[in-house]
């Protein structure tokens, strides 16, 4: 730097002092506008969030009775699927066919076999 800070300031300091003493001041109207802005922003940020509309699945969930009912339904559904896909071997193994076949009209069967219409 060609000049020292002291040299630079020898004449400028009186101007800087004058500038500090004659600072531009905000008008009353500006202060009021800024205050109003603050209130508007505060009202925006502190407003409670609007309740969101529940989705269809959550409405159905509540309609069914919440988690206890849904758990029961899910268990029953899984049991049904399991019974449907597994072969009923235990029920048939070694059983006599006549034990579970019921002839509701034996006379009709006889008539058919005899060919007597």
């Amino acid at each position: 730097m060609a000049m020292s800070d002291r040299d630079d300031m020898s004449g400028l300091e009186v101007f800087f002092d004058a500038a500090r003493a004659h600072a531009a001041e905000p008008s009353v109207a500006l202060m009021a506008r800024i205050e109003a802005d603050a209130q508007a922003v505060a009202a925006q940020t502190s407003a409670p969030p609007r309740p969101r509309r529940a989705s269809l699945s959550s409405q159905l969930y509540r309609l069914l009775g919440g988690w206890p009912a849904v758990t029961g339904l899910a268990t029953a559904a899984m049991a049904g699927v399991w019974l449907g896909i597994s072969l009923p071997e235990g029920m048939l193994d070694g059983a006599n066919e006549s034990a579970y076949l019921i002839d509701v009209a034996p006379e009709l069967a006889f008539d058919l076999a005899g060919g007597n219409f």
Binding site: E25, M31, I34
Partner: peptide, 17 residues
């Protein structure tokens, strides 16, 4: 809200200047 008023009075003149 009082904090906003205090900040307004304290900072706005400096910002304006």
């Amino acid at each position: 809200g009082a904090a906003a008023r205090a900040l307004n009075l304290r900072l706005t003149p400096r910002v304006m200047g």
